[in-house]
Amino acid sequence: MSAILAIESLSIAYQTEKGLLRAVDNVDLRIEDREIVCLVGESGSGKTTVANTILRILPPNAIILDGRVLFEGVDLLNMEEEDMSKIRGRKINIVPQNPSTALNPILNIETQFCEFLKHKKGIRERDRCREIAIDLLGRVGIADPERVLKLYPHQLSGGMKQRVLIAIAISTSPRLLVADEPTSMLDATIQSQILDLLLDINRREGLSMLLITHDLGVAMSACNRIYVMYAGEIVESGSTERVISKPLHPYTIALIDNAFLSFKSQGIKRAVSGEPPNLIDLPSGCRFSSRCPMAFDKCVKERPNLVQRGIDSVRCFLYHDASA
């Protein structure tokens, strides 16, 4: 298999009043052809920063400290903006977190669709555009595309808006979809419908997907492989099945234990104490050490490396000896 996307030792910081905030640190991540890869982590762990780096839409105070983002073998970070704009919105598309703010409230769906197709595919004829839009809306499970094209965003539910945005996103036959929390604003029953749709599109359209989520349940039901992020670093990666059933990193273990709750009668779960570290003033040791039930001397003094074994990786001293 060949990688569609390969992120190599990516480090991003934000300039803030209080100092340099290390949002993403030394991140490696690969997405193979037709694969759905999940980036899982709590809020503030750096997921959106990774997504925005891939699309090169980082805010002005962001600094790329290091790393490469290879898309089909070409480094996006070294590219002129003019070339990048031919990839963004064409070969790499985004499914946004908030479908309500992603659509223009004063234009109907048909106009927005046609604007996009004109801009990205040079399709100017209204009839041709309508034809394409109707086909695509059908492919994302909208039963009456003709009617929906005439509607304005406020006349659509959140789930319908997300379907429209997915239809627009696949209109250019992209190689990669970046979906940053695509279902977190939606209700449970709608969330599972949209996830099913994304899986279906991955299969039918043969594209790869980076699915970003804070919800391990979502990751479990959608992804081939998972990367777990904590305080700007990848702390573990592997096949979804392996990560969920045999997590290695103490943080992943705690995350899974806390994400999948049981019944009250089963008793109290042990909570992870404390909170993630301050990214402006990071500890010198392992970033999870102050919360880790397994931590020993070395953990607070030194930073563990990412230990790689096949498709599995883990950043924790408990596994350093085993690999040496």
Binding site: S157, M160, T189, S192, D215, G217
Partner: peptide, 19 residues
Amino acid sequence: SSPSASRLSKVNIKPIGEI
């Protein structure tokens, strides 16, 4: 529809359409 609750249950039906 809830990945975390469906692990505790045997049911599996998908609702049609929207609220």
